[in-house]
Structures are given as structure tokens and as C-alpha cells.
Design a protein around this nucleic acid. Structure first.
Lengths: 329, 329
DNA sequence: TTGAAAGCGATACCAG
DNA sequence: CTGGTATCGCTTTCAA
């Protein structure tokens, strides 16, 4: 692989000049530029990005930590982020945190070690203190789907509370009064917030929550299945089921089918997230839209603006969920 | 951020020695190692991986090109690959090729520019010639889900032909004779192979293909919807539908529901890939299993063995698809 | 076992 | 506008 030195030699200019035409930072005489470009072409030269990073102290890479690489939710998120950065000539390094504090910390350290210019984090297990201290180190990063007061300006969130409210409110408006709720793990911020929203809606309608109609799931499909069965076995009867995400809703629908119940006639079901496959279910799932793509894009723009000084004006920090009515309610 | 130089100073040893304890390449006296480690700890030292890469001409990063970052298929693939490398202290840089030759080439060039030690490619649009030449440059890479004879030893594939055969054979064994087929874009190797398998099965059973029962889709859900409607409008009637992937099968099922048809009583449907969400459908989708996780793992191991000389014995090149019977047939 | 010193391939400041 | 040169942080001979 040709080096900048060989190019400068072939072009008969100094090494510094070649660097200039590569980065076209300062003006270079047209004739010189042409000579250099010809030389680069002839040698098939491509700058060594590692050397560039070392010299400039910029890696042009952004680290991303998400819980899982698989899964429709993260897929879409990553996809959008990659797109945005790719267009800007940056690239992403991705690591999985698996919703586990140690692994999340590991991933973050790992990425820091790769000299990422910035990080985009979707971490659930590390505590606020860790993140606050991380911010104090000067490492630029954005936090997705989580609000930490001390570093509020780095948070891009969805109003999960509102989403939870919307879901249950919709059921209430349809006339349901016995509404079961399958939650995500309550130690996760978003699960807790969605649940809060659910409770608010009940309160708003003058109802008090029936604990027998609550189940704490795991945000996975099996959680939906188990939750549904548990509620049917141990709980009061209910005509509506609110699930804290689509995977669990899908599981619940499967379980309902197996129990021979008709949806939505006998039980109405609503999910949350509006993942790509939420309409694979039958009947198609009514859900709350989580604008992942937009949030991913915004996170990328935050970095572009704050770290790379790109001129971007509107940085939006809080996104609003939206009710998507389909056939399961 | 502390540098190796500061560590060496604090520890009272030479810079070279510090490097040795970091990489524990050559023996270092126990006492020395302890001094150095203490110094590293005190300074909160973490090696600068960029500098390491430049000096060693090793980036410890593996580039991956897939068609889309979203989507259940690639998600699982990436997830497994990341896992495997993470455990080996390597990391992945991911780029999307979007099934487009220019973008795929771009992605590859981009990754080469980042000095990846190796590449794992799931590319569909670039031609064999390009890949062959790429191999000739000395860049180590594995090709997933595609066989290019000239670089056969770098290919890890699924026997798509066999998979297509299995799907149709199963329908035939169930007694179906009017079997419609919704294919992927035929310019894609895997789509073509799966289709070939379908034809072989028909032939094997002494049937000739009815072109009116063929539709070329796009591997997306809408392709399944359109395909189904097209076949119903323009084709002969059929009792079974073979789809070249699960997304299209899901679309077809939706369309069938809308047409008021019962599955599998009136139309049996089978998919291909066995993506995570293939059982979200109702009835649950019968399909052909594509062992993505294993293939991802194998690709990672290929790299670990070939590029990083890790002792790994069994490198398997061709994987076999498997019939997964659920409720849609 | 350890140290000294020569790179790795760029960037960027300082002159000219 | 262009050239010279120090520098980035670490790896890797070569000697000692």
C-alpha cells in the first residue's frame, strides 16, 4: 500500500502538500493539486486512517452500545445511525451491553479504548452515577431512551410515561374496565415509566389498580406467554391486555389463541414500540409507536453537531409516542 | 490520558518494558511487572489502540458488510459475530451494502481504509470478478451465503438449493400438486438457488412447472402481499404456496387472511429462513431453518483461525437447511 | 530481562 | 502557496 511519502515523491512535492490536497484544508495551486492527484491515482493511494487518527487525535469513529444487536428495535436504530454517519464519512463501532451492568461498562471502556470520538449509548443497567462520572471525563456521548438529570443535555428520550398512558387510555375509551398489564422488568427505566403511565390513566378514569391483573415480564416473547397464562390462572377476568412492548404482546396473542380466545372480541391487546414485525401478528397489533428511526437520527446529529461542529440547528430531546390502531383492539 | 511513556517513568522502567507487560509477549521479571502494573493502575492507563494499530500494523478490528442492519436475519448474524470477536478482544466495524453494487464496493473500500484485519462479507450485488480480484489483493475476507468458485475456500454457505427442494418436497408429500412459488429477486444467488431447488422437487415428483404459479418478489413483506394477490388474480388456483423467505410468507399470509382464506386448510404456506419472528404469524409459519447463528459463528472463527492464528480445527463451509414444521402447512 | 532507538503514516505548526 | 520537521503513542528489532 502506497504511503503519503511515495505520493509526494512521485508528484515532486512535499509530504505536507500531499496532506493538504487530501484534506483540502488550505488552498493549493491548481497545477499542484492536479499533479498530486495524478500521483495518488497512479499509486492507488488511499490514506491510512489509523495514521490519520493518531496524528490528528480524531478517529472519525463513533461507538455505539445497545443491549442486543439482534431484535427489530435495535436493528432499526443502528441502521439509521449508521446511515447518518456514513453520509458524513464517519463510521460506527458497535458493541452489545446485554442489559448487564458489567457488560455495559465493558463495552463502554472497550469503545473508549478504540478512541471513538463520541459514544451513543442505549444502556439500561449501569447507574446514573457512573454515567455522570463518565460525562465528567470529557468523553462526549449521548444517552438514548433514558433521562439522567445531571446530564440532561445529553439525553434523547421518548416520553414513555405518556406512551403508557396512551395505551391504557385507549382501552379505557373503548369501554374496557378490567385491564391487565404485562410490564417489562421494573428495574428498567422505560418499563417503570410505561407502567407509571398505565397507572395514571387508570387514576384519571377513577379506577384503582387491581394488582391481580399485573405481571412483570421480561420484554421477551416468552414473558408475554407466561404473563398471559399467569393472569388467566391467577387473576380476575379481564377484557383488555396492555403489554409494555410488542414482543410480549405477540407472545400474549399466541397464548390467547392457544386458549381459544378471540382477539379482539374476547380480549383486546395493545403493544408498545411498533417494531417492524408488529403487524405479523394476527390480528395485526395495535400499538404505541416508538419513533426509533427519528431518535437514532437525532442521536447521530447530536454527535455531528457537538463533536464535529456540523451546522445542525434543531436538536430535539424528547420524542412523543403515538397510538397506532390496528386490529387487535 | 496517560501514555505509555508516563507509565514507564512512574514505574522507573523503560518504555519497551511497559509495552512488554501490556502484551505479555516476552517474559518480564515478576517484580518489574508488578511495579509496572501498579503504575498503570495509578495513572488509569489504557493503551491507545490507534497507536498500537499503527505500530503493529494490526487494527484488531474486523469489517462486516451486510445488506441491511435492520431485519431479523442480519441482526442475528451480526449479534453472533460480535459476540465471538468480543470474546477474542477484537471488535467489529459494520457497514451496510443495501444490495447495491456501488454501495457494496463503497462499504468494502471504506472498511479497507479503516485497516480492518479482515472482512466478513454478505454481499449480493458485486460480481464474482470483483471479489476474486479483491482476494488477490491479499485482503483476508470470508464470504457468507454465496459461493464463488475461484475463492471457494473463503465461502461459507447454506445449501439453498437443498432448502428450496425441502420446502416444495414437503408440500408435495402432503399431497399438494398445485404449488405456487413466490421467489426472491432472481439476480440474487440465493433466490436463484432456492428456486432451482423448488423446480428440482417438482421434477422429482414428475410434475412440470406451471409458470402461471410463479411470481418474482423482492424478499420483502410487500412482495408477499403483491405476489399472493397477483397469483390469485392471474394464475391457476393453488393449494400450497412456497415462499423464498419468511418476510414474503408473512405478507402472503396477511393477504390470504384478507382474502378470507383459511390457512392451512385452503392454502398451505411455507417460508424460508426461520427468522426470529416467523412464529409471530398466525398460524405459526412452517419454514426452512437457516442456521444464521452458526454461520455467523463460523465466519468469525474462520477469521480467528486464518488471520489471528487461533487454534481452531473444524471450519465447516457448507451448512444444511432443515425443515421446521409448524402450523401453516 | 531490559533499554535504546528506529519506525508506522499521517497531521500541523512554523518559516519562507 | 509550499516545504521542513516535530509529534502522535506504541511496537519491535538490536544490543547489552
Amino acid at each position: 500500500m502506497a504511503t503519503i511519502y511515495q505520493v509526494s515523491e512521485l508528484a515532486g512535492v512535499s509530504l505536507a502538500t500531499v496532506s493538504r490536497v487530501i484534506n483540502n484544508t488550505v488552498p493549493v495551486r491548481e497545477a499542484t493539486r492536479i499533479k498530486v492527484e495524478a500521483a495518488m491515482k497512479e499509486l492507488g493511494y488511499r490514506p491510512n486512517s489509523v495514521a490519520q487518527s493518531l496524528a490528528s487525535n480524531r478517529s472519525n469513529s463513533i461507538g455505539i452500545v445497545v443491549s442486543e444487536l439482534g431484535g427489530p428495535f435495535y436493528g432499526e436504530l443502528l441502521s439509521r445511525i449508521e446511515n447518518e454517519f456514513r453520509a458524513a464519512g464517519k463510521h460506527v463501532i458497535i458493541a452489545a451491553g446485554h442489559s448487564n451492568a458489567d457488560l455495559e461498562r465493558d463495552s463502554i471502556e472497550f469503545l473508549r479504548g478504540r478512541n471513538c470520538d463520541a459514544l451513543i449509548l442505549h444502556v439500561e443497567a449501569v447507574d446514573d452515577k457512573y454515567l455522570t462520572e463518565l460525562a465528567a471525563t470529557g468523553l462526549p456521548f449521548v444517552l438514548i431512551n433514558r433521562m439522567v438529570e445531571t446530564i440532561e443535555d445529553r439525553c434523547i428520550t421518548l416520553d414513555n410515561d405518556r406512551g403508557g398512558y396512551l395505551a391504557t387510555e385507549y382501552m379505557l375509551k373503548l369501554g374496557h374496565r378490567d385491564i391487565a398489564y404485562i410490564s417489562g422488568p421494573l428495574w428498567k427505566h422505560d418499563a417503570q415509566e410505561r407502567y407509571n403511565g398505565h397507572q395514571s390513566a387508570l387514576t384519571k378514569f377513577g379506577l384503582s389498580e387491581n394488582k391481580a391483573l399485573f405481571y412483570e415480564g421480561d420484554f421477551q416473547e416468552t414473558g408475554g406467554v407466561n404473563g398471559f397464562n399467569h393472569l388467566r390462572d391467577h387473576g380476575y377476568s379481564f377484557t383488555a391486555l396492555v403489554c409494555a412492548n410488542d414482543e410480549m404482546a405477540s407472545g400474549a396473542i399466541t397464548a390467547a389463541h392457544e386458549a381459544g380466545l378471540r382477539i379482539p372480541e374476547e380480549i383486546a391487546v395493545i403493544g408498545f414500540d411498533n417494531i417492524n414485525f408488529s403487524h405479523y401478528t394476527y390480528p395485526k397489533l395495535t400499538t404505541i409507536d416508538y419513533p426509533v428511526a427519528e431518535i437514532g437520527q437525532m442521536a447521530a446529529r447530536w454527535v455531528l453537531k457537538r463533536v464535529y461542529q456540523r451546522p445542525i440547528d434543531d436538536l430535539k430531546a424528547v420524542f412523543m409516542p403515538k397510538l397506532i390502531v390496528r386490529d387487535s383492539t
